[in-house]
Simulated scan of single mutants.
Amino acid sequence: MRVAIAGAGAVGRSIAAELVGSEHQVMLIEREAANFEPHTVEQAEWVLADACELSSLEEAGIQLCDVVIAATGDDKVNLVVSLLAKTEFAVKRVVARVNNPSNEWLFNEAWGVDVAVSTPRVLAAMVEEAVSVGGLVQLLTLRQGQANLVEMTLPEDTPWAGKPVRDIDLPRDAALVTVLRGGRVIVPQPDDALEAGDELLFVASANVEGDIRKALGSG
């Protein structure tokens, strides 16, 4: 997979290093000479250019990328990069960093954003997930809010201990995708028995999250 990252600050470089480590082709686009440090991620292609300029993106070959990540520290820049990538170059997947939570509402399909990542929101969800048992926690928003990745940890006194996955009466627009148990990642099968302490990960529409709570007895 070929990925372009706009912004080679600490966040952009970290993302690039992770993707390179997974054997993806990565291009970092940076407009500030002070942040142009190819030695920090040597396996990536580096381009000194303004990602908000159409000609710069075209010269960099962004039209050949499968994914564009707008990872600068400026929300306005990230929105412009996302819009250009989607509308001018038809990039299949656009991921954008949200720096200011108050701007999160702008990061949607109208601006070319497929996935918006708000660091404060993600951190808050991680904290909530770590301390919440028996409640449903939203971890990530997918497809401009059309669906969410949500988690529930079964408490020690759960009535679901020993019961099979098939007994969970999930609503139509929800799916149990993974069960985390200790150090294991389990792809749930209908006959698999649940255990206290299991972390259940669901992909679900926001409007059925209440039904998931009811199905698992957490009201």
Rank of each mutant, 00 (worst) to 15 (best):
V41T: 04
V131E: 07
V41P: 02
G112I: 10
G135F: 00
V81P: 09
A174N: 06
E37D: 13
Q138D: 08
G217M: 14
R213Y: 05
A110Q: 06
N148T: 00
S118H: 02
E104Y: 14
A206F: 05
K92H: 12
Q43L: 11
L200G: 02
N207D: 15
P171M: 07
A196E: 11
I168Q: 03
K76M: 11
L54W: 09
G21A: 13
V179F: 09
E209H: 08
G182L: 08
F107S: 04
L83E: 10
G182V: 10
E37A: 15
R13N: 12
E151G: 00
K163Q: 14
L64Q: 12
L170Y: 11
I15D: 02
G183E: 15
R97Q: 15
V113Y: 02
G12T: 06
G134R: 03
D167L: 05
I212V: 15
K214R: 15
E53F: 05
N99C: 07
K86P: 12
E199T: 10
L123D: 03
L140H: 10
S205W: 04
V185L: 12
F202C: 04
P190C: 07
G183W: 01
N99D: 11
K163H: 06
I69R: 03
D191I: 10
V165L: 07
V98C: 09
S14E: 08
G73H: 06
T178I: 12
D74W: 01
A204F: 13
E156C: 04
A34R: 07
A175Y: 03
D167H: 08
C65I: 02
V117Y: 05
L48W: 13
V41Q: 05
T178V: 14
G9I: 07
N78E: 07
V113T: 04
T87S: 14
L149M: 12
A90H: 15
V68S: 05
A130E: 12
A130S: 13
P120L: 06
V117G: 06
E199A: 09
Q63E: 14
V133A: 01
V137H: 05
A124N: 00
L123K: 00
H39R: 06
A130F: 01
V11A: 14
K76T: 14
Q138A: 10
G183Q: 13
T178W: 05
E37L: 15
L28C: 06
G9A: 10
E209S: 05
D211A: 15
L201H: 03
L176G: 11
D191L: 09
E37W: 03
Q43M: 10
V115F: 08
L136V: 07
D75L: 05
G210R: 12
V179A: 02
E59C: 03
R213M: 15
D50H: 09
P164F: 07
H39F: 04
A10K: 09
A85L: 13
N35Y: 12
A147Q: 09
L64T: 10
V117L: 15
L54F: 11
T178G: 00
